[in-house]
Amino acid sequence: MPAVILPQTLDELLDLKAQGHTILAGGTDLFVHMRNKKIQPQTLVCLDQLKDKGLREVADTGDEICIGAAVTHSRLIQNPLVQQHFPVLIQALDTLGSPQIRNMGTLGGNIMTASPAGDSLPPLYVLDAQVELAGKNGSRRMSLSRFITGPGATGLNPEEILYRIWIPKQPSYDLHHFEKVGHRKSLSIAILSMAALIGLTGDRKIRAVRLAWGSLGKTIATSPETEKRLMGTPMDDPAGFILAAARIREEVSPISDVRAGADYRRQVAGNLVLRLCQGPLEPLKQGPGAV
């Protein structure tokens, strides 16, 4: 039976973290792990009475949007700033869990779980998100791709918390796209997921592209060779995408697990690239500075 502490201020929270206590955010992963006895914390630090605004708000800071780690997925989906600048993140969060889970789970929690299948992670990778880690001696920022080091493993120091997530606005990408393959639409852990940002020339050829993959490797995978192959491809030219699909199947070395084998994942990765040509992509809503 863990004790429960309800800090009111950020300073109290950082003190408790420095003492080595476990933080309870949305609880949608933590309580499942506790029930399965994978984690047995002696003390839970509950964020619900915390008055700190930084953990809970979404703010426009000019070139970036700053998201508090304790903002729930539902709040992000409803947030006008996120809707305007990061449609790819909205599309991904819309597939995460269920309405109930999205009302409880937080963006910070999804990052700290650091699952290769974490639905928010491929979008945050292509968006070049940075994490702000706060401790009693100040805070530091690092890129998310450097922060996550393995399944369930991050570069967080024991006395730090994940405080905020900073995402640069993306004026140079015209198309945002996320697709997840799972056994069913809701409450399924991804067999494979892909986030894509695409920038187009005036005659709709690809001039910039970012891809990131969930459930493909031990952490979120990127595919620079396939991105290179896609450069210059006209959006309505299947031949270019067929070559890129062949490239991704060579480029990746997928995991095999209980949800799917490596060969299946390799095949599906190519199919998701093909879908970029065929599928309905959501155009980036015009934002300040957007092309």
């Binding site: 309800l6 609880g27 619900d48």
Partner: peptide, 15 residues
């Protein structure tokens, strides 16, 4: 807001 009572503890519903 819809939530799941099996994944919440008493301390979270204060107030």
């Amino acid at each position: 807001e819809l939530r799941l009572a099996c994944l919440m503890i008493a301390a979270q519903i204060e107030g």
